[in-house]
Write a protein that binds this DNA or RNA. Structure first.
Length: 409
RNA sequence: CGGAGAGUAGUGUAACGGCAGCACGAGUCCUUUGGGAGGAUUUAGUUCGGGUUCAAAUCCCGGCUCUCCGACCA
């Protein structure tokens, strides 16, 4: 894509009061635009990243977990929340129709998915079942904060699984952990993201989170470096040692982190509320065991910014970068044009064809953080070369034009 | 929701109760082109509602919004 046609541009400055690193970089780089606290527009660069994260998640949901994508409504009738006794939870946004109907905006979808599934599941033959969606969630946070890390409106992947018994659920729950692990590895924060034992809230005794270590996080975890798992501070009083190796609390590392995902056993909390049952081989009605599995998609993008950036800007991992290659022509507009046209057939290329000074283009390239930067200038062309620099490396290399493709492949 | 701070142009800042100004940015044109270059020119503002006053960006009251700390957080 030609950068001259990209909607959005970088900013040299940003509001002084915006302290959060992800907000600063994402706004300056033109990835997002703030509408109000906790509510953002995603601009082309940011949206591309979101889409890539989504697709990595989709692949794992589909292939590792055998789940199916659906899309549920964001507008929910309050009546269903009365059935689950959640009509008064304070994160719900309430609204009404012009004929007096009372609705809420979806902050999670148990109340929708369970009645939905009950239309189609009646036999043990229909189970197990996993359905998920990627959708905007609405939560009436008292205090939105930290850029896109904690919004009133945000993108979330939520998966719900349905099982005949606890054993089947446990197998699925374990597989979900593997799928999540794959996702964080691929997105580039696997080494900083830990499976974390956490409170089960009102639904169940325990749950598991995936916590990415960063100073921008709101949570505190106790990390067992030996096992690579952690315990959320909220349960450290009851769980005083690593559940895997028994290392005691004083040996665990206390550290700040951001919760990027949370998986829950729901037992029959919601299936009971809506009388969702299946018939076993004998034709007897049995309760359905459920689990739910969330990933904050937009929050994940924020967590990547917090983890993978330097003083000059973003350093996107190739797996989710908005483009793979950024071509920067300096005092040249014919050779670079050709290189762009050629490369663009095979990979995602951003071509800085703007009429700007070299310094400005280079600063912008650092800020936007595309993995490969190719500078084409009279200096490099003297030897039939371009300069290729990886955003995460200090050194640049001169590469013959005909060898670019094999270098950045 | 409790606490603290703050609202003047896109950003950052000035203006004793008395003409809203400056810089940067952004737009246009020209020059420039290896780390945010130079010149010319244009653009845009007192958060909202009350009150005090001859006169309010400025003082008083209230709302709203933003940032930070805390609480909350399927």
């Amino acid at each position: 894509m030609r950068q001259s046609q990209l909607f959005t541009r970088t900013k040299r400055d940003f509001p002084k009061e915006e302290e959060s690193k992800n907000a600063q970089l994402l706004i300056r780089g033109g990835f997002v635009c703030k509408e109000m606290a906790g509510v953002y527009s995603y601009l082309p660069l940011g949206l591309r990243i979101i889409r890539k994260i989504e697709n990595i998640i989709r692949r794992e949901m589909n292939e590792t977990l055998g789940a199916t994508e659906i899309l549920m409504p964001a507008l929910h009738p309050i009546e269903k929340y009365k059935k689950t006794k959640r009509e008064n939870i304070d994160v719900l946004f309430h609204t009404e129709s012009n004929t007096g109907g009372h609705f809420v905006l979806g902050q999670s979808h148990e109340e929708v998915v369970v009645p939905l599934v009950s239309n189609f599941v009646s036999s043990y033959r229909d189970l197990p079942l996993g359905v998920y969606q990627i959708q905007t969630k609405f939560r009436n946070e008292f205090r939105a904060k930290s850029g896109i890390l904690r919004g009133k409106e945000f993108l979330m992947k939520d998966l719900y699984s349905f099982h005949t018994d606890e054993e089947d659920f446990d197998r699925y729950y374990k597989k979900a952990q593997i799928a999540y692990r794959n996702i964080f590895n691929e997105i580039g924060i696997g080494d900083k993201t830990y499976l974390t034992f956490a409170s089960g809230g009102t639904f169940s005794k325990y749950s598991h989170e995936f916590q990415t270590v960063t100073d921008a996080g709101e949570d505190i975890i106790y990390l067992c470096s030996k096992c690579g798992v952690a315990i959320n501070e909220e349960i450290i009083d009851e769980q005083k040692e690593c559940p895997l190796c028994g290392l005691t609390k004083d040996k665990l590392e206390k550290i700040k982190s951001i919760e990027v995902a949370n998986i829950f056993p729901l037992k029959t909390r919601f299936s009971d509320a809506f009388n969702l049952k299946y018939k076993n081989k004998k034709g007897e009605a049995c309760p359905i065991i459920m689990g739910c599995y969330g990933i904050g998609v937009s929050r994940l993008m924020g967590a990547v910014v917090e983890s993978l950036s330097d003083k000059n800007g973003m350093v996107w991992p190739e797996s989710i970068a908005p483009f793979k290659v950024h071509i920067i022509p300096i005092d040249d507009n014919s050779v670079s044009e050709k290189i762009y046209t050629d490369l663009n057939k095979q990979m995602e290329v951003l071509y800085d064809d703007r009429d700007k000074g070299a310094g400005e283009k280079l600063k912008d390239a650092d800020l936007i953080g595309i993995p490969y930067r190719i500078v084409v200038s009279p200096k490099t062309l003297e030897n039939g070369c371009v300069e290729v620099k990886r955003r995460d490396k200090e050194q640049a290399e001169l590469i013959k034009i005909e060898k670019i493709k094999s270098y950045v492949k």
